[in-house]
Simulated assay, not measured.
Amino acid sequence: MDADQIIGAALDPQGDIGSHPLAAWVHTQDTAHMLAWALTGVVPPVLRDRVPLPRRGPVAEAPLLGAVDKAQFFDHLRETAEAARSPRGGALLHRQALYLASYDRGPEAAAWTAHTLHARRGVLMRQGWSEHWAEARSTATALARLGDPQTLLDFIERSLADDDIAEAANLNYWAYWLGSVRLPQPDDRFMRDQRLSDWDPVTLLRGLARGLNDAPGYVDLHIHTLWALLDEHPWLPKASPALATVLAERISQLLDGSGTSGRTRRELRAVHYVLDDRI
Rank of each mutant, 00 (worst) to 15 (best):
R192I: 10
G15I: 02
P184R: 00
E108S: 12
E82P: 04
D75A: 12
H94L: 14
W37T: 01
Q253M: 15
G8H: 05
P184H: 03
R78L: 13
A119K: 11
E108L: 12
I223E: 00
W177Q: 14
G89W: 06
D148E: 15
G90D: 03
E267G: 00
G128C: 02
D198H: 12
Y176C: 08
D214N: 08
G128A: 07
A134N: 07
M191F: 00
L146R: 06
H94V: 10
A244H: 05
E82K: 11
R85F: 01
L275F: 08
L146Q: 00
D163C: 07
D214P: 01
H272G: 15
G57Q: 04
D16C: 03
H272C: 09
Y173L: 15
D193Q: 05
V246F: 09
V271M: 12
S252I: 01
A10M: 02
R206E: 08
R137A: 12
I251P: 01
L152P: 03
E82V: 10
A91N: 08
W129H: 14
A32H: 13
D148K: 06
D188C: 04
D104V: 02
P52G: 00
V42D: 15
R48A: 14
G41M: 11
E61V: 07
T31N: 05
P54K: 06
P87V: 01
A119Q: 10
D69S: 10
W177F: 14
R158G: 05
E108P: 00
D214C: 03
G66W: 08
R56E: 14
A62K: 07
D154E: 15
A38W: 01
M125E: 15
G18R: 14
W37K: 12
E61H: 11
A71R: 04
A248G: 04
A23L: 11
G66N: 10
A84G: 04
M191K: 04
D276L: 13
Q14E: 10
R278W: 03
H224C: 00
L160I: 11
T141G: 03
G128R: 05
P63F: 08
V181L: 12
H33I: 00
R263W: 06
A119G: 14
L204M: 07
A23M: 09
M125S: 15
T264I: 02
Q185A: 07
S261H: 11
M34C: 14
S180G: 15
